[in-house]
């Protein structure tokens, strides 16, 4: 099957005064039609920047982004506009991502108008249809964001992203601003809509529970690079990279009787201004060896469609 989206060796560096911030340092990923993939990592790991380059909210410094085989990374904005409706985004904070002065109806009619749909009745009927899909009703049409609850706002955000029938939806932390029960029903809704519309999702998050319930494949990012990738069930059950292990073991378990061993990282994420020469985790890794500081490990293929970038794993495989 032809991939829907291919990101090839994308780098994104920002200038910040005299410094260069290396936000994304050569990441490659592929998303197939109908696939739900997660990109996880902690703040500053470059996951949001990656999604912003795919959406052309910012231009990559290097690398290619192919949508159905066509490079969209350097396409002029006017030409790219034709692809906009096909690649959509659901934002993290529904309070910030909805224009406070627009009613639900106005928010949802804008993407349709931009697609060239003119008829008032057609627009209205499509909006009502979409609202129904996200479990809202016609009574919400004339409400302003402040008149909606957090969960309802996020539903409007989801409706806005899906109303143009996109092939790829980027979900940027779609549940992290929501309370627990609301979070659950939003995950549930996203899963249901994915089955119905058969769009691909790229979920950007640090919440492993959302990943578990929504995605089939996961990629773990650290300091602008992918350090581990593979099917969710396998990566979660048997993480290879020390960072993935630390990340998974840090999630609190809601069971007071299990006292599990935590893999501790030392200190903080290094600054993306001056990247370490070797492995980016070397300074924090409890298992680091001298060579980890010398040479940067490549992303290696492992059996079962898994990939890991760690010197220690390289040996595990070769031996």
């Amino acid at each position: 099957m032809e991939p829907l989206l291919e990101v090839k060796n994308v780098k994104k560096w920002f200038r910040s005064g005299r410094d260069t911030v290396h936000a994304v340092n050569g990441i490659s990923l592929t998303i197939h039609p109908g696939e739900v993939v997660a990109l996880v990592g902690e703040s500053g790991c470059g996951k949001s920047t990656t999604s912003r380059t795919i959406l052309r909210l910012t231009d990559p410094t290097e690398g290619q982004i192919l949508y159905k085989g066509i490079d969209i990374s350097r396409m002029p904005e006017k030409q790219f506009r034709a692809y906009r409706s096909k690649i959509q985004m659901v934002f993290q904070d529904p309070t910030m991502s909805l224009n406070p002065l627009f009613t639900v109806k106005r928010t949802l009619s804008e993407p349709l108008r931009l697609q060239g749909i003119k008829g008032k009745d057609e627009i209205e009927s499509r909006i009502i249809q979409m609202l129904k899909k996200v479990q809202l009703g016609p009574e919400h049409l004339d409400r302003y964001p402040r008149q909606l609850s957090g969960g309802q706002r996020q539903r409007v955000g989801i409706a806005r992203a899906l109303i143009t029938d996109p092939d790829l939806v980027i979900l940027d932390e779609p549940t992290s601003a929501l309370d627990m029960s609301v979070k659950l029903s939003v995950i549930n809704l996203l899963r249901k809509l994915q089955h119905e519309l058969n769009a691909s999702y790229l979920l950007i998050t640090h919440d492993m529970n959302t990943v578990k319930h929504l995605c089939s494949r996961v990629m773990v990012m650290y300091l602008g690079r992918i350090v581990e990738a593979g099917p969710v069930s396998e990566v979660f059950a048997n993480p290879k990279h020390p960072y993935t292990r630390a990340l998974l073991s840090a999630i609190p378990v809601a069971d007071p009787t299990t006292k599990k061993e935590r893999i501790r990282l030392i200190g903080d994420t290094p600054s993306p201004v001056s990247l370490p020469k070797g492995c980016s985790l070397a300074d924090r890794c409890p298992m680091a060896e001298p060579r980890c500081k010398e040479r940067q490990p490549e992303l290696q293929h492992l059996p079962g469609e898994r990939m890991v970038a760690c010197h220690l794993v390289e040996e595990m495989v070769s031996s």
Partner: peptide, 12 residues
């Protein structure tokens, strides 16, 4: 529900 294995019903 959130803690359970994946693909369980999350509706609540």
């Amino acid at each position: 529900k959130l803690d359970q294995k994946s693909n369980g019903d999350l509706n609540m």
